[in-house]
């Protein structure tokens, strides 16, 4: 809908792919030459289109031209919330533990996920939904470890919404008593507002990011249940006060739990696995 603002229209922009259905890494849709989008910033031409020309001669009223006030009182994200509730009910009925993984780009979400799946796949049956604006790259990485995965490409959209999850879940054929990992679009702002129906929300932050991120982007930390601090193997090389980071995050969300780990070296991964297994049961 609007090319310059950084967002797609959420409907035509979203596409859902199974890496097994695609032979190459190329994603299937071609970018049809986008028509220059028409931002009508130049004062919309109000051409008063009252086309009944003062029909004073007949005296019956045109009832449908009367003003009417509708007291709507409806939440704007109502549709997303309803679909999220629908997903949640489905997950609960099938005993699927669903996690929504959120973070800024580059915090190591996919690496963490890859390692987790490799280490636990014999113990826990996993399903994965990958969210990115473009490419099948992440889904291909997951498919390479033999885990059922669906890729949602949001086009210009900056977050996943619950209706796309609903469609992706249908395509995944998830079995009962499993864990569903939803890797959201790398973005620390927008995904916070959109409930996907997840059981828990996990925010990932890496030691290469600033310790004040939780108060710079409070919404995401406010809505998360667990905060994973990744890349602790880099601590000797970066200037970050992890305690301060936690303090900032706790100011925003006093109930937030923390796990420090490195998806590269494996340090701390067991704490995360214990959390996962405990929450699942």
């Amino acid at each position: 809908m609007c090319g310059t603002c950084g967002c797609g229209n959420g409907e035509n922009g979203v596409s859902i792919h199974n890496p097994k259905d695609l032979k190459t890494n190329e994603h299937g849709h071609h970018h049809h030459d986008e028509p220059a989008h028409e931002h009508t910033h130049d004062g919309h031409t109000h051409t008063h289109s009252h086309d009944h020309a003062h029909a004073h001669e007949h005296d019956h009223q045109h009832a449908h031209h009367q003003k009417k006030v509708i007291e709507v009182e409806q939440d704007i994200l109502h549709h997303n919330d309803v679909m999220a509730a629908r997903n949640r009910g489905y997950f609960e009925a099938k005993n699927i533990f669903a996690l929504n993984l959120v973070s800024s780009p580059g915090s190591g979400k996919t690496s963490l996920l890859e390692r987790t799946l490799k280490d636990l796949k014999t113990e826990i049956p996993f399903f994965v939904i990958e969210g990115d604006q473009q490419t099948m790259n992440d889904a291909n990485r997951i498919a390479a470890i033999d885990i059922p995965v669906i890729q949602i490409n949001t086009g210009k959209g900056c977050h996943l919404e619950s209706d796309a999850i609903f469609d992706a879940v249908k395509r995944l054929n998830i079995t009962d008593n499993t864990v569903l990992m939803i890797e959201n679009v790398g973005n620390l702002v927008c995904p916070s507002m959109f409930d996907l129906g997840e059981s828990k929300r996990v925010v990932i932050i890496s030691t290469t990011e600033g310790e004040d991120k939780p108060i710079k982007y409070p919404d995401m930390f406010h809505t998360s249940d667990l905060c994973i601090i990744n890349k602790i193997d880099l601590l000797p090389y970066v200037h970050i006060d992890v305690e301060k980071l936690k303090q900032h995050a706790l100011k925003v969300n006093p109930k937030l739990q923390f796990i420090e780990l490195s998806a590269t070296t494996g340090e701390g991964m067991n704490t995360w696995y214990d959390w996962l297994k405990k929450q699942k049961n």
Binding site: G10, H78, F194
Partner: peptide, 13 residues
């Protein structure tokens, strides 16, 4: 820029 989603939600209502 989730505001576009918000605006489209308003349009739908």
């Amino acid at each position: 820029m989730h505001e576009l989603s918000v605006a489209l939600g308003i349009v739908k209502i």
